[in-house]
């Protein structure tokens, strides 16, 4: 019992109650508790301070804390809602919520736009019309994958993508156009659903919930 008590009282900075987070996300209380187990593991992998630092996220994603990756930066920014350079537990759970299989598709579409746009301007797609930046992202991706395509070919891909998405032809992709584009290309949101989240309580059983059931 003493062990149980000490486990419950030792919470990390930024900890939020599972009941609060479950009410705001697709997760159940038990799933939030299981996510806390995962969070503790991730947040202590390099710096044991109960917060996920960028290198800890990189370590989890790539098994290499020093691997620089354009997209890992974007994922980190997605989680670091407060923009203070670390991911707190509440941010972790709320941001993961959109990846839940039961999260609304609209949220996934919106989140994809933010991941693909350049400045993380939530709710807007203003930066998606910057072809140059998109081309750079494609080139970076190809480089990471050791794929060699000519500059002209990549530009052709980007131009065509914009023509297909910019239905009004006004030089920008607005949220409605983005929604339409995703409906025609559903693989765009494939990575926005993590089946693992349905089994999170099995993968990371929570000591707290098991003890509370016994109580």
């Amino acid at each position: 019992m003493g062990c149980y008590h000490s486990k419950r009282t030792k919470k990390t900075p930024g900890y939020e109650e599972p009941t609060v987070l479950a009410a705001e996300t697709p997760f159940t209380v038990s799933e939030v508790e299981a996510l806390y187990e995962l969070f503790k593991k991730l947040s202590s992998s390099v710096i044991d301070d109960g917060l996920i630092h960028k290198e800890e996220l990189q370590l989890a994603l790539f098994r290499n804390k020093n691997k620089r990756n354009l997209f890992a930066d974007r994922i980190f920014d997605l989680f670091d809602v407060k923009r203070n350079g670390v991911i707190e537990f509440g941010e972790f759970v709320r941001s993961l919520g959109v990846f839940h299989p039961y999260a609304p598709v609209e949220d996934k579409i919106h989140c994809t736009a933010n991941l693909l746009s350049d400045y993380m301007i939530y709710g807007k797609l203003v930066s998606l019309n910057e072809k140059r930046r998109l081309k750079e992202m494609v080139m970076a991706l190809l480089h990471e994958s050791d794929l060699l395509l000519s500059d002209d070919f990549v530009e052709t891909i980007v131009d065509k993508t914009f023509r297909d998405a910019d239905l009004k032809g006004d030089g920008k992709i607005d949220p409605d156009e983005w929604k339409e584009f995703v409906s025609k290309n559903p693989s765009l949101i494939k990575n926005m659903t993590l089946p693992h989240l349905k089994d999170i309580t099995l993968a990371f059983p929570s000591f707290v919930s098991k003890t509370e059931v016994e109580d």
């Binding site: 989890a60 974007r74 693909l116 992202m137 980007v158 993508t161 297909d164 993590l194 693992h196």
Partner: peptide
């Protein structure tokens, strides 16, 4: 020249860097 069927956004969104599955690997 063959018609371009690749989609730049699709290419990016399916990249490994945007796949969070590895977070759940023990």
């Amino acid at each position: 020249m063959a018609p371009v069927t690749m989609n730049a956004f699709e290419l990016i969104s399916t990249s490994q860097g945007l796949n969070l599955s590895s977070l759940f690997e023990k």
